[in-house]
Simulated scan of single mutants.
Amino acid sequence: MDLTTSTSSPTTAAPEPITGSCLCGGIQYEVTGEPMKRVMCHCENCRKFTGSSFMANSFMKESQLTIKSGESLIQSFKDTKVDSGNTLERRFCRVCGSPVYVTSSRAEGFVVVPSGTMDGEAGRKWRPEVEFWCKERREYLPVVEGTQALEMD
C-alpha cells in the first residue's frame, strides 16, 4: 500500500491547523493540511508504544508537522524489531511518556502523528481509513466499519 498518495478529495479551503500536545503539555505541536492516510495499527510494537490495544496514526508529510514548544523534551527510541523490517524512530515526551510522532527508515520525509495527542474536534472526529496488522488485533475489538483491513504478513 502506498501511504504517500492521498485518498482525501481536494477541497477549496485549507483546513484549520490541528494542534496537539503530550499529556503534561510540555510539547505542543501543530499539523497543517489533511493527512495522507488515517491508520489503526494493531502490531505488538505500536500497542506497547501507546500502552493501548492499537495505535491510531495520521500519516503526514514531515513539512506538515511543526513542534511549537518543548522540542528539548522529545526523547527518541530506535525500534528495530518491527515485523515490517523498517526501523522506526519513536519520539515521545521524556517527562510524561506520551508518544509525539514516529518516522520510518522506509518513508523519508514523512511522519506518523498519533491521533490521541490531537486536541479538540480534530481528535474527536479522527476516523481510520485502513487497519494494519489485523492478524494481531485484540479479539474483543471489532473491525471498524468502512476501513480496509490488512493482515500484513
Rank of each mutant, 00 (worst) to 15 (best):
T19S: 15
T19P: 07
T19N: 13
G20Q: 01
S21F: 01
C22P: 02
L23N: 10
L23W: 06
G25R: 06
Y29K: 08
Y29L: 11
Y29H: 07
E30H: 03
T32Y: 03
T32V: 08
G33W: 00
P35G: 02
P35N: 02
M36L: 13
K37R: 13
R38W: 07
V39M: 07
V39G: 04
V39W: 05
M40T: 11
C41Q: 03
H42S: 06
H42W: 10
C43Q: 05
N45V: 13
C46H: 04
R47Y: 13
K48P: 09
K48M: 10
F49M: 14
F49N: 14
T50K: 12
G51E: 03
G51F: 07
S52E: 09
S52G: 10
S52H: 12
S53G: 14
N57I: 09
N57R: 09
S58H: 07
S58A: 15
F59R: 08
K61Q: 12
S63M: 08
T66S: 14
I67Y: 02
I67V: 04
I67F: 03
I67C: 01
K68L: 13
S69K: 12
S69C: 09
E71Y: 05
E71L: 06
S72R: 10
S72L: 12
L73K: 10
L73E: 11
Q75L: 13
S76A: 12
S76I: 15
F77A: 01
F77G: 00
F77E: 01
K78H: 14
D79T: 04
T80P: 05
T80Y: 08
V82F: 11
V82M: 09
D83G: 10
S84M: 05
G85A: 06
T87E: 06
T87D: 04
L88F: 14
L88P: 05
R90M: 04
F92Y: 06
R94A: 12
R94V: 08
R94W: 08
C96M: 02
G97A: 01
S98C: 01
P99H: 03
P99N: 06
V100D: 01
V102G: 05
V102S: 08
T103S: 05
S104F: 06
R106S: 11
R106H: 14
R106V: 11
A107G: 13
E108F: 07
E108V: 10
F110N: 03
V111A: 00
V111C: 00
V112D: 15
V112I: 15
P114G: 05
S115H: 12
S115P: 09
S115Q: 15
G116E: 05
G116A: 08
G116V: 06
T117G: 09
T117H: 04
